[in-house]
């Protein structure tokens, strides 16, 4: 009995470690080919617009142009292989279904929320700048904006995804961040990302 369709379906759903997720790749490959093709063309134009101070052999835009050109051909190749698997309509339909599923799916929404929180974290560390120094025995113990922001944001992420009590999440966050920062700051003499 021919089990090829079954095998193909199974292959499409597998997620392999260290590689990439398989899924309904038809629409994805087509969309990727279009985006990469456009990107390659933009870089080709930008490479051609770069000045050439010396010989053409040392032109700053030479290799970027060659890379963009070959990237464009690769995008065309990817597009052709996507069209072999389905028509343009199939591809666009597949992509629309994928995007719709992603928006409806809880995992997709949680990812968008997490990206928002990480973005907020990076922004807060950049914007806030303060530090307190508490004399402890023979050295000044520092608490800076980086630690405060990290404890709050990591505690919040733990509360949402680890789903333990607020106190427990806050405590774990406090201990871990302080331990981490102490090792880097006092052990390795590193400057923490703060006060900018």
């Amino acid at each position: 009995m021919d089990d090829r369709p079954k095998r193909k379906a199974k292959r499409n759903q597998e997620t392999l470690p260290g590689h990439y997720e398989r899924g309904p790749v038809v629409g994805k490959n087509f969309a990727s080919a279009v985006v990469i093709g456009v990107l390659a063309m933009v870089f080709m134009v930008l490479s051609l617009r770069l000045e050439v101070p010396g010989s053409i052999y040392t032109a700053p835009g030479m290799l970027p142009f060659i890379v963009s050109l070959t990237l464009f051909f690769m995008a065309v190749g990817l597009g052709i292989s996507a069209l072999r698997q389905g028509s343009i309509g199939d591809n666009l339909g597949g992509l629309a279904r994928h995007l719709k599923n992603y928006a409806v799916d809880q995992e997709g929404r949680r990812t968008v929320m997490l990206i928002g929180m990480v973005f907020l974290y990076v922004l807060l560390v950049a914007v806030l700048s303060f530090d307190f120094r508490i004399p402890v025995f023979f050295f000044d113990f520092e608490i800076t904006s980086y630690e405060v922001v990290s404890i709050l944001v990591v505690g919040m992420i733990l509360r949402i995804f680890w789903k333990k009590s607020l106190v427990r999440c806050g405590f774990v966050s406090l201990i871990m961040i302080e331990a981490l920062v102490s090792v880097f700051r006092y052990g390795f003499g590193m400057i923490m990302p703060e006060a900018f």
Binding site: S150, V154, L158, W162, K163, L180, F184, I191, P193
Partner: peptide
């Protein structure tokens, strides 16, 4: 340990590592 506990704790290391 559960990934939901480990992964958030890796986030500050990512920030420190790239800043350093």
């Amino acid at each position: 340990l559960p990934r939901t506990l480990l992964m958030p704790l890796i986030l500050p290391i990512c920030v420190i590592g790239s800043f350093a």
